[in-house]
Computed example of a mutant assay.
Amino acid sequence: MRWLQRLLGGNKVRLDPARQQALVHEVRQRFGAHAPEPFPAQVEAITGLLKDDDGLVVASLIVGQVAEEAHADLRAQADELHRRTGRRLLVHRRNYRPLWKEAGPGLRWPLFALPCGFHPYAQLTAAVTAVGDRAARIDRVVDPGPLLTGLFEILDLTTAGWEYGRVPVDVDAATLADRLIGSTGRILTEVDDPPRLPPPVRELMRRNDALDVAGPGGPRPVGRINLGATMRERFLV
């Protein structure tokens, strides 16, 4: 693992845990659905705060925490559905799509109300942007394996939410998906032994359909996003 060898070697990365905690606090308190600025402005501001190695650690932490809490939320929802209906649902982190295909109308998309308070279109989009912008530093600062796992899980949740969870495909949602794909692709090119693409990604890469992207003022489309084509372009390098 090159990242661990470099952390233990002579070219040591200097990190400040106290500053990281302060960044987490600032990002959580200043930004999100309660902030007056639109999400794109928030993403730009947060990304500016996460532009160094401590920021990269914080961005990775945000991605990991969102992925963990989303999984816990879906497990709790599946348990509640089983208690009420007797239906037993499998919650598989490597592939959430079967769960959403089977129980989509009965599930709540978890990313809008996580205990951590990170909003998917503010803090999360900014964190995903930050890890992609600094992909060349990933293996010097954090373990890229769990980070990639978290990015793939959130990408799966995002696209499954569009298809089965009634999550609107608006500009902010499309931006999150595009940043997830772009940042994941950049990190994959930087790691020594990139993981195999998970099943939901491979499934979507076989498609070539484009989705309308609604504008901020209503359902009128302002563009289109082709997930399959974008993934093939970013992941097949």
Rank of each mutant, 00 (worst) to 15 (best):
V191T: 05
A136G: 12
E203C: 00
V237I: 13
I225A: 10
R28Y: 05
L124C: 06
I62S: 04
L81N: 04
R196V: 06
P115Q: 07
H92G: 09
D73T: 13
G185S: 09
Q21N: 13
E69T: 09
L236W: 13
I154L: 14
R220Y: 08
T159L: 10
D192Q: 06
S183R: 05
L176N: 00
A35G: 09
L89D: 09
G218A: 06
T159H: 06
R2M: 07
V167N: 13
A214T: 08
P168F: 04
D16T: 02
F112S: 06
L211T: 11
V169L: 15
P115M: 12
F31I: 09
L148V: 13
R94P: 08
Y121S: 02
R30L: 09
A59P: 00
L111Y: 04
P199Q: 00
Q20P: 11
Q77R: 11
G55C: 07
V91T: 01
P221T: 04
R206G: 14
R84G: 10
R207P: 02
F112P: 00
D53I: 05
E102F: 05
R202T: 07
V167I: 11
V63A: 09
E80A: 10
D133S: 03
A59T: 00
V201E: 01
R140H: 15
P110W: 03
P40Q: 13
G132W: 02
H92T: 08
A210Q: 08
G104L: 06
T129F: 05
N226L: 13
K51V: 11
T159M: 01
I225R: 10
G215A: 04
D133R: 00
I187P: 03
N95H: 14
L4W: 10
V222N: 07
E190R: 14
P110Y: 00
D212M: 09
G215R: 08
V57A: 03
Q77L: 11
Y164R: 04
E153F: 06
D16R: 02
A126K: 00
T189P: 06
C116E: 06
K51S: 15
L7Y: 14
E68M: 08
E68Y: 12
P168D: 02
V24Q: 15
R87L: 15
G106L: 03
R19W: 08
Q20N: 10
P36L: 01
D139K: 07
G117K: 03
A22S: 12
R220F: 10
G215E: 05
G161R: 08
L176M: 00
R196G: 14
H119G: 14
I154H: 05
V213E: 12
D53C: 08
R30Q: 04
R83Q: 14
N208W: 04
L61A: 02
M231T: 12
G223H: 01
M205T: 04
Q42L: 00
D193M: 13
A72Q: 15
